[in-house]
Design a binder for these strands. Structure first.
Lengths: 109, 109
DNA sequence: CTACTATATTACCATGCAGGAAATCAGCGA
DNA sequence: TCGCTGATTTCCTGCATGGTAATATAGTAG
């Protein structure tokens, strides 16, 4: 608790938040939740273009969120930092609390 | 644990990540850590322009991250969701682990 | 009323970036 | 070698958004 944040640290934290602030990247990470996947599999799962997925994976990799493993023609990606899902859970809790609050404010709850 | 994420949920989570993925907004939140502040105070603390801070505060407010209180000419903002700092702490831990890993890879550690 | 202050809003510019198409690279088999 | 496939990279376009200056709004004091 009570960790101190200087501007440089906040910049780094912001970068990571920004990386996670893209629906397609979250879908990719979510698809990797149960284990590693090839790029093609991720393309099929997400329905996005192959170049698009590749670029997102590159970004995720550069930011230490996924790891890669080459095997023949295929490249397998996997979650490098499971803490991501903890972040998502916290946000979901917060979102739910937010909705509950708004409903209470509106007198629905 | 093992919360399920559908696409709609991921979209909402991404929005929140995106809101937090801006250094200036993190600086604002960080400045609010010890208590409420007026817009002017935040302008002075962050060194940013007044319109800029106002817009960021508006966005933070719309997304349920800060609350406002009017008192005369001043508007006081405060943290609405302290979970934000938990998120930052998790990311910082992750960043530190990442750096440690890279140093080990380089044979420094 | 006017004048002043604190916020908010609008208009505009510049940058960043997601997405797609096409070219390129890499690895395998014939 | 050529051909095929998976993946990456490059180029381009359109949209979103951070920053700033100017304007507008709200609240206070005189």
């Amino acid at each position: 608790m009570a960790r101190s944040y200087n501007d440089d640290t906040l910049d780094l934290v912001a970068v990571r938040f920004k990386v996670l602030g893209e629906p397609m990247r979250l879908r990719i990470l979510n698809a990797l939740r149960e284990g590693e996947r090839t790029v093609s599999e991720l393309v099929q799962i997400t329905g996005a273009g192959q170049a698009n997925i590749s670029k997102h994976l590159n970004l995720l990799h550069r930011n230490g969120l996924v790891e890669r493993r080459k095997e023949g023609l295929n490249v397998f990606y996997r979650i490098a930092d499971a803490g991501v899902f903890r972040l998502c859970d916290i946000i979901c809790d917060s979102l739910e609390a937010d909705i509950t609050d708004r409903m209470r404010t509106l007198g629905i709850g």
